[in-house]
């Protein structure tokens, strides 16, 4: 009630003391400049944020048997698009990406050791960059429209963790989770190629890693799945 009274007094002072109430005001001259801006989803420059989630697929080495449903990625980023022609754009994006590989525990598994744990994962925290060419499909107004992207990506692994979960052999004991941070047997840099198809708020993407993930391992023994397919949600209009 007190707030209502204060509001009523302030409203009275405002309306009587300061005169007028603008119900509508439009500065067309200023708005006109906005009409001719170069910034927009289908204009010269555009930035938009996005979320992405992916599933890791592809073959893995016998010594690094990946479990598909425990391996995937999640990211959040911002993308810049620079329009070159009505149908062709290029751009860059920068994102934070979390990539995890879940390693199956069997007799052939060999990741530093061949001990079979309850769970074992490699988790990567990445600064992920991507340069792409975009081909618009069909005509659209100031709208992202349908598109097809191809490009290359590079990722800096700012966090490289090897996580194991084990019961230490004690029946009914609480499972122990051990995280080895910034391990030196994982590479600092990852790179590959990427493609997307957008519709437009939702895009499907696939990325193929060309680089190795583990250091100083014999050929083929370091092979973790190198394909991620996923979905992106563009947080734009």
């Amino acid at each position: 009630m007190k707030k209502v009274i204060i509001f009523a007094i302030l409203s009275f002072i405002f309306t009587t003391g300061f005169g007028q109430r603008y119900l509508l005001y439009d500065n067309v001259e200023n708005e006109w400049a906005k009409r001719n801006t170069n910034y927009g989803p289908n204009k010269k420059h555009y930035f938009y944020p996005y979320l992405k989630a992916g599933q890791t697929i592809g073959a893995s080495a016998d010594s690094l048997p990946a479990k598909y449903w425990g391996s995937g990625s999640f990211g959040i980023g911002i993308r810049y698009k620079n329009k070159l022609t009505s149908w062709w754009s290029h751009g860059l994006d920068l994102s934070y990406n979390y990539q995890t590989y879940s390693i199956a525990q069997n007799n052939e598994k060999m990741l530093i050791d061949n001990i079979q744990y309850e769970k074992e994962k490699l988790n990567l925290h990445q600064i992920f960059g991507n340069y792409y060419w975009r081909f618009r499909m069909g005509r659209a107004g100031n709208y992202l429209g349908k598109f097809f992207d191809v490009g290359g990506y590079g990722a800096w692994n700012i966090g490289k963790n090897h996580v194991i979960k084990a019961d230490e052999g004690i029946v009914n004991a609480k499972k122990q989770k051990t995280k080895f941070k910034n391990v030196d047997y994982l590479e600092d840099i990852e790179y590959g190629i990427i493609a997307r198809i957008g519709f437009p708020r939702v895009a499907f993407y696939g990325q193929y890693r060309l680089s190795t993930l583990l250091k100083d391992m014999p050929d083929n023994s370091d092979k973790l799945p190198n394909i991620v397919v996923g979905i992106e949600l563009s947080l734009n209009r």
Binding site: G19, Q20, R21, L24, Y25, D26, V28, E29
Partner: peptide, 28 residues
Amino acid sequence: NKVYYHIRQSDGFILEYALVEPYQKEVV
């Protein structure tokens, strides 16, 4: 009662316009 006003160029193009509900003689 509401006061409508606009400022326009001689070619008719409006540069700004407003609608004001007045509470004093001098509206704007």
